[in-house]
Simulated assay, not measured.
Amino acid sequence: MSKLILTHEVSGLGSAGDVVDVKPGFARNYLIPQGFAVAWSRGGQKQVEAIKAGREARELATIEEARDLKARLSAATVTLTVKAGAEGRLFGSVRPADIADAVKAAGIAEIDRRKVEIPTPIKSTGDHEATIRLREDLVATINLQVVAAK
């Protein structure tokens, strides 16, 4: 097992600043090259504290604000206009950054694209769902309406 310090949130593993044990291949081939983690060392404790302080600053200030945002996101239907073929098939797929931009354009809130999770790839027009991790313990589901650009 390799001991690492996460520098970004990784689904199913942990949040930025967490110290985790993972298999050496996962660390060597994915987490470290992608910049999601750095090797743990005794001097790394200062780095952990700096990462956690940055994460706390970016997190929504209170649980009430997060719950309010969750209610607004769940109630809204966000429309995404994308390039699509004649049969409603997209050229590519919808990315988390596209969803974050659409939520911002709809005037709901400004969210971080790294907090958006798409359970199944969105490759066609129609109604879809995505989740947004507002806090470690609070997840909002957002309804998306994907339409073809004219």
Results as ranks from 00 to 15, higher is better:
residue 25 G to Q: 04
residue 88 G to S: 05
residue 91 F to G: 01
residue 51 I to W: 12
residue 135 R to Q: 10
residue 108 I to A: 13
residue 26 F to Y: 14
residue 107 G to H: 14
residue 115 K to Y: 11
residue 36 F to T: 00
residue 135 R to S: 03
residue 39 A to P: 09
residue 144 L to Y: 10
residue 18 D to H: 08
residue 140 A to P: 04
residue 5 I to C: 03
residue 99 I to M: 12
residue 147 V to P: 02
residue 24 P to G: 04
residue 24 P to Q: 07
residue 142 I to F: 11
residue 105 A to G: 08
residue 147 V to E: 12
residue 127 D to Y: 11
residue 52 K to A: 01
residue 76 A to N: 13
residue 56 E to H: 08
residue 148 A to D: 03
residue 80 L to F: 10
residue 150 K to V: 05
residue 71 A to S: 09
residue 51 I to C: 05
residue 136 E to L: 00
residue 50 A to E: 11
residue 9 E to F: 11
residue 109 A to Y: 14
residue 114 R to G: 09
residue 133 R to H: 15
residue 90 L to F: 12
residue 38 V to W: 11
residue 14 G to Y: 15
residue 67 R to T: 03
residue 130 A to I: 07
residue 96 P to S: 09
residue 90 L to Y: 12
residue 121 P to A: 12
residue 138 L to W: 13
residue 26 F to C: 01
residue 114 R to A: 14
residue 128 H to K: 09
residue 28 R to T: 08
residue 132 I to S: 05
residue 130 A to K: 08
residue 58 R to V: 00
residue 102 A to F: 11
residue 55 R to M: 07
residue 7 T to S: 09
residue 113 R to S: 07
residue 144 L to G: 03
residue 97 A to K: 13
residue 100 A to Q: 11
residue 120 T to Y: 09
residue 110 E to K: 08
residue 27 A to C: 00
residue 23 K to M: 04
residue 131 T to C: 07
residue 16 A to Q: 05
residue 11 S to P: 03
residue 70 K to C: 00
residue 130 A to R: 10
residue 31 L to D: 10
residue 82 V to W: 04
residue 62 T to M: 11
residue 53 A to H: 14
residue 124 S to F: 03
residue 72 R to I: 04
residue 42 R to K: 15
residue 84 A to K: 02
residue 141 T to E: 14
residue 6 L to Q: 04
residue 79 T to D: 02
residue 61 A to I: 02
residue 64 E to S: 09
residue 131 T to I: 10
residue 59 E to K: 07
residue 72 R to Q: 11
residue 138 L to D: 07
residue 77 T to Q: 13
residue 125 T to D: 00
residue 20 V to E: 10
residue 83 K to Y: 04
residue 92 G to A: 06
residue 141 T to D: 08
residue 128 H to N: 06
residue 101 D to Q: 15
residue 64 E to T: 00
residue 58 R to K: 08
residue 73 L to G: 03
residue 32 I to V: 12
residue 64 E to W: 02
residue 22 V to G: 01
residue 113 R to C: 00
residue 107 G to W: 13
residue 43 G to Y: 15
residue 92 G to P: 04
residue 97 A to G: 05
residue 48 V to F: 12
residue 38 V to S: 01
residue 19 V to N: 02
residue 132 I to H: 06
residue 81 T to D: 02
residue 8 H to L: 05
residue 1 M to G: 11
residue 20 V to F: 07
residue 42 R to D: 12
residue 89 R to T: 04
residue 94 V to G: 10
residue 96 P to K: 04
residue 54 G to A: 13
residue 140 A to K: 05
residue 12 G to W: 12
residue 103 V to P: 15
residue 108 I to L: 15
residue 85 G to A: 02
residue 80 L to N: 05
residue 87 E to H: 03
residue 59 E to W: 14
residue 34 Q to E: 12
residue 43 G to N: 11
residue 32 I to E: 10
residue 97 A to E: 15
residue 63 I to W: 14
residue 107 G to Q: 13
residue 73 L to K: 08
residue 106 A to N: 13
residue 127 D to M: 05
residue 139 V to S: 04
residue 132 I to K: 06
residue 80 L to M: 03
residue 4 L to R: 00
residue 33 P to E: 14
residue 90 L to M: 10
residue 77 T to I: 06
residue 141 T to H: 14
residue 128 H to Y: 04
residue 29 N to I: 07
residue 77 T to P: 15
residue 38 V to G: 00
residue 73 L to I: 05
residue 129 E to Y: 11
residue 65 E to L: 08
residue 125 T to G: 01
residue 74 S to H: 02
residue 29 N to S: 01
residue 56 E to N: 03
residue 138 L to Q: 03
